[in-house]
Design a protein around this nucleic acid. Structure first.
Lengths: 122, 122
DNA sequence: TGCGGTACTTACCTTTTTGTAAGTGAGGAG
DNA sequence: CTCCTCACTTACAAAAAGGTAAGTACCGCA
């Protein structure tokens, strides 16, 4: 049975937005693609500490379905696939900025552990 | 074994923020409390279509631990408990506003189903 | 010949999250 | 006397999400 794309029904906008970002690595994928504009599969993999290949493909496929990510395949050997953000992906990222700032504040408040300090500033 | 509170380690701010909002009803609870300032348990229950008592208590307890929600118990019979947002809860809500707006746009774009039109405008 | 890199897919298992249904104990309405 | 309300708690079941390990097919390097 094919997994239905994230399509509600929703109770409010937050609902609809959280539906596309919830997923262990989606926020990070969004961010990596925003920072580098274009990334290959293996580059993303190296950029997300601890992600498995399965989850990365799964998330990328869902984000593609949701119109956040663009996937370009080059007919080469060895294979080459480039991922980048679509316009919707970029605006989502902008909408996430205040939330990210709130999260940074929360980390500071709670003294939570952080994996990668370079990234935690956002 | 006691469930650890949401405390990372986090990779970035988005991570830390999503950690406290992810949960099927948390966004809605935040919103209900923001709109009404103070709500009793049964009022929240009626405000969230389809929530079970168990999930509502669970989410409220977690949000209390996370410092988003304040819980005031009156020593009366029948029991009376009032929930309201803390300062952190209010700032989180503000940080979620752009995301909500993005979600509303997405709903419009996709023509997704909506449960309650009065709420979907936010 | 054997290994590493490319970008996946598949099967299987574990963990986490959510749902269902029932029980609690006192008070008030009919 | 029975049912409803309040604000929960508990046990159990189902569903969803995530993790592990292996396989694919072809290339280049040594």
């Amino acid at each position: 049975m094919v997994k239905a794309p994230r399509c509600g029904p929703y109770i409010c906008g937050i609902d609809a937005a959280l539906d596309v970002v919830s997923g262990k690595w989606k926020g990070l994928i969004l961010w990596e693609l925003d920072a580098h504009r274009v990334r290959r599969f293996a580059e993303l993999r190296r950029g997300l500490p601890g992600v498995s290949e399965k989850m990365l493909t799964q998330h990328l496929r869902e984000m593609e379905q949701d119109g956040l990510v663009h996937r370009k395949v080059y007919a080469e050997v060895p294979p080459r696939v480039e991922y980048s953000l679509t316009e919707h992906g970029r605006t989502l990222n902008q909408a996430l900025e205040p939330l990210g700032a709130w999260g940074v504040e929360r980390i500071r408040r709670e003294g939570s552990e952080v994996v990668d300090t370079a990234k935690a500033s956002r």
